[in-house]
């Protein structure tokens, strides 16, 4: 079920287009990846969702209703450029930020204590940000984003500043938040985390949406008949046998097993390929390579730039 949508959103700054006719639809309890190179317009879209800036035209909807300022209490936003008050005690500023999101002081303290315990930073409650490590600060920042139990969470590059262990912890938290009912819009350059987390992605380049769909469908769409074959036998023989049908992208020779990456160039079936291999080598595995998000990203953006 759709919880959030943007319809035909346009935004122009001075004379640069930031968003051109962007529409997205986000399902409830899903993780939506908003991807695109630097300067594509992601942050502008996120700011429009957060009611920080208004679109020139187009509308954003939350739960089927047009969004207003009153809805921002239901959003938790972790911006890419983030920070906290340097001199203020961590506990105090977490309470303050929660209050600004509409929580009562009492509820804020109660919820914050749970999260501080969970992230093992309770001892830092009365310290100031200056005394904390970068990773620690990010934890505090993350807590202040989610403490008011928002229905819609927006994370802009959430993993920057985290070491692998804490990044993993964060990943688990994000998944758990989704399982508990939250919907997450997630903007990042870290394509590995997109594959792991996102159910659905939209790819924006130069203010225009160039891809939109479930993550696996998009990867499927960008596959280009590439196969990886592991075999025992002689490379030259294999190469000769396949010569008319495929293009060899790379090969690796090894004592026990060889590996070859190939690409179909004509319409022959996989079975035909395997048939022509059987006489010359012992096949250990035959696997179609689905492109990872990184490949998809580079390919899609590259194609769109050439247009």
């Amino acid at each position: 079920m759709e919880i959030f949508s943007a319809r035909n959103v346009n935004k122009v700054f001075a004379d640069t287009k930031a968003l051109t006719n962007i529409s997205i639809s986000v399902n409830e309890q899903s993780i939506f990846g908003l991807l695109g190179p630097n300067g594509a317009g992601k942050t502008t879209l996120i700011r429009i969702i957060n009611q920080i800036t208004a679109p020139d035209s187009g509308e954003v909807f939350l739960s089927g209703r047009k969004m207003t300022r009153a809805d921002i209490g239901q959003i938790g936003y972790l911006p890419e450029e983030r920070g906290l008050y340097k001199k203020m005690k961590i506990g105090d500023q977490a309470i303050y930020l929660a209050q600004l999101k509409g929580m009562s002081r009492h509820d804020a303290i109660k919820n914050l204590k749970v999260w501080f315990e969970k992230f093992e930073i309770m001892a830092w409650w009365n310290k100031s940000i200056e005394e904390l490590s970068k990773g620690m600060q990010q934890k505090v920042q993350f807590i202040t984003t989610i403490v008011h139990k928002p229905r819609l969470l927006i994370f802009d590059e959430p993993f920057s500043g985290f070491d692998p262990i804490n990044a993993n912890l964060l990943k688990q938290e994000i998944l758990q938040l989704r399982d508990e009912g939250a919907t997450i819009i997630f903007s990042t350059h870290n394509m590995g985390s997109v594959e792991e987390l996102c159910d659905h992605i939209a790819l924006i380049n130069k203010s225009v949406k160039i891809e939109d769909g479930p993550t696996d469908e998009i990867r499927e769409k960008y596959k280009s008949n590439i196969f990886e074959v592991k075999y025992k036998g002689d490379f030259d023989k294999v190469n000769n046998a396949l010569n008319q049908q495929i293009k060899v992208l790379s090969h690796l020779e090894n004592n026990r097993e060889n590996q070859i990456t190939i690409q179909h160039i004509n319409g022959k079936s996989n079975n035909d390929l395997i048939k022509s291999l059987i006489p010359v080598a012992e096949i250990l595995s035959f696997e179609e390579k689905i492109p990872n998000m990184n490949d998809v990203f580079i390919k899609a953006v590259g194609e769109s730039n050439r247009k």
Partner: peptide
């Protein structure tokens, strides 16, 4: 200036006008 420099400003104006 402090709010702008420490970059807390974006968090705050996503909560208040």
């Amino acid at each position: 200036m402090e709010e702008k420099k420490s970059r807390i400003i974006e968090v705050i104006i996503s909560s208040v006008k």
